[in-house]
Amino acid sequence: MKKGSSSKDHGVLYLGIDLGTSRTSVSASNGVRDTVASFVGYPKDVISQKLLKRDVLFGSEAVKHRLSLDFFRPLEAGVLKASDEGGDFESNLRAATDLISEIIRLSQPRKDELVYAVIGVPAEASIRNKEVIIDAARKSVDSVMLCSEPFAVAYGLDWLEDVLVIDIGAGTVDLCRMHGTMPEDTDQVTMDTAGDFVDGRLAERIREEHPEAQFTVQMIKEMKERHSSVSDEMEPVVVRFPVGGKPTDFDITEAMRDSCREVIPPIVEGLGKLVATFDPEFQQRLKDRVLLAGGGSMVQGLDSAIEREMQRTLGGGRVLRIEEPIYGGANGALKIAHDMPAEFWEQLK
């Protein structure tokens, strides 16, 4: 074969990808880190295509132009919508494939390098879901592996023994018990009381208290990301919604705090289950090593609030928020990719 730009013998680019319901992030071995909101849009017609000058839009750009797009959020409740075989299967599958291609493009791989990727998926993702993700990723990389998101977070921090990981995403909250080996099904709990759940509760509450306010779920989501808190002493949250076309201010401090707090009891209940089924000798050590990760961990005061709830129901515990909630999963996946032996990558090509 002619040696040319197409031969991939000039390096290996490792990618760690956190494929999330709300955001998809990548950490690459060329130093690139990037994140994109998990939204994909295709121009509805020729006119919008000419106006947007693109065949597909991603992230915030897709959100901005969503009225002139066939708009997709291919992941929901931590799984690909394409994997349920129902509804708009083909379109969601295409959106998921394009989203993965886009996040790989954002990592700026060179054409002459091998690309090996580890993708973090929800702890309890179905086999079908994993197959769809692998199928989509294989179109853009040379070799790909999947691993559970909370496990990737722990591996990235080298916390492999006697650790409880809480990974709060938009679609799911994943709890994972690490005990020095690969977590099994019994070591993992997935719940849907995550970011989208909070958005829904907050929207309900505002609708009850201010029925005249006009808003969308997307507006609620943006507000939550800016003001979310569970602290008693939080700053007042005053937001502006249109009422009959006129922008009007509303104080939603209480609604915001209460909605965010609703995720705490299920999380601590899940932690309690994982602690209770662990070796009694190490239960206290497990409770004292709780890692809080994922986009949801950025809710102000959440670590302290979980500690208080653990104190009340489990008799104590310590929660440590990871330094980079957005990239924690991607960083861990990158580290797994780096440590994986060459022959394993070769076999999975």
Partner: peptide, 29 residues
Amino acid sequence: GIKSIYRSVQGLATDSGDYARKKDILGLI
């Protein structure tokens, strides 16, 4: 594009902490 800092597959370093355990875990993955 941006060049990766690695020219070949790295694999787990033998002097890595928890080498044996990590090797097992990677094998399971």
